[in-house]
Design a binder for these strands. Sequence first.
DNA 1: TATTTATTGAGTCAATATGACACAATAATA
DNA 2: TATTATTGTGTCATATTGACTCAATAAATA
Lengths: 250, 250
Amino acid sequence: MDINNVDTSLFMPGLSVDNVIFGFHDNQLKVLLLACKDHKHWMLPGGYILKEESVDAAAERVLLDRTSLKKVYLQEFSVFGDPRRSRESLIKGLMKSMDLDTELHKWFLQRFITVGYYSLVEFEKVTPVPDPLSLSCDWFDIDKLPLLIFDHKTIIHGALTAMRQHLNYQPIGLNLLPAHFPLKSLQSIYETILGRKLDRPNFNRKMLSLGVLTKKEKLYTGAAHKAPFLYSFNKKVYYRLLKEGINEMF
Amino acid sequence: MDINNVDTSLFMPGLSVDNVIFGFHDNQLKVLLLACKDHKHWMLPGGYILKEESVDAAAERVLLDRTSLKKVYLQEFSVFGDPRRSRESLIKGLMKSMDLDTELHKWFLQRFITVGYYSLVEFEKVTPVPDPLSLSCDWFDIDKLPLLIFDHKTIIHGALTAMRQHLNYQPIGLNLLPAHFPLKSLQSIYETILGRKLDRPNFNRKMLSLGVLTKKEKLYTGAAHKAPFLYSFNKKVYYRLLKEGINEMF
DNA sequence: TATTTATTGAGTCAATATGACACAATAATA
DNA sequence: TATTATTGTGTCATATTGACTCAATAAATA
């Protein structure tokens, strides 16, 4: 699909959504990024808001277009509204590489205020799809990010900070992990988001005490050590905890 | 100031900020609202974003204009992006009462996506100032809200929910309480936000254990019972807790 | 002036949770 | 068969929580 066929008059001007899509693979938290056509920068999957579309729906559409996934955890976390955020000098080379007609050129030179979302998806279920603005779509380790356009590094950092806070009163892992998983995988997710190591026995005790995990008969196999039990989330309890919160101060 | 003198071309189209300004008085959490010119509805203090102004700065400006206060706690908490949120039927009577010229009429008929902020201010320090769209500006008890326009009731509810979550990892009370206050006032704030009663001795123990309160020599006086000690916040500790979080899960 | 009332400051105590460990069990590999 | 890495389970001292008690006291009232 050619960018120049996009009719920008369908969108709300000056507004966009950007989606920090997290996946988990090889015991690592990963982010889905798009390669810009200048072969230098990467960017977050994002898009514009149709004139009769809700902002949340636009974010869902972006997620669907890049991952073909629906009904995963999608959470708005912050607005990025600095007037200079999308008008850094680097945009010039970028714009040249996109080969835009006059109208689209003007569209991209606007000031954009963007609404940041993060979503948690099951890595294995995703076949990344690039958008018309990009060359490719790939996963990156959260601590090995490439060069990013605009304030997209800040947005990713903001998503992590938001998750770190949400961890204190919400369960995490559903949608990010496969249906059955060893507890160590869940611990790795917590450790990545919190940015520090946790004590395994204490982590397990705490998680199991929430009553959100169901122990499975099957055993994971393949490595040179004792095989761990697999667990799955009890969705009913999971959604109750999401709604009611855990670890309340009072 | 006449509304019709406002030059709407100075603003980002389709975007606004709304600010849920909380105050605390008579042991009650209160919200600052503006009376619409139709003499029927009330609304949140809000405004538009200047073309070269950050969204945060617009929210600060709204707060400054209505309360003459700067540097208080101001937190973005959610975006309200439903395409029909500002175009309910009730707007017609409202628009008539505003006596707008053609250009402004069009401006108000736009779809608006609004960024919700909440702020915590010291009730006694505020002299509410109405804006050009409103007749007056007044405080309302959080549980005795008047009829509100659009989705403003949802926005207030969202601010409360956000605060309820923030309570679990952030201190609260600075900017909302006077410099010296009895512990019971702080407890009332927590109880209002959480929507339930707390045990006094346990609340005091928990609060004092955070090390954020300094006991003062002075005693509060006036009521027919033992006089309580007054406390003040240790700002250094307060800001550290705001940044680092309290009550972490791990 | 003595008594009553409301509310505070301080504390108890059992139950529960947390942080920091120890150690045997076991799946593949050497 | 021994080695290695990692798991399941458990211990234990300490800290925190929830549900209480009760004497102290400022003003109102009798």
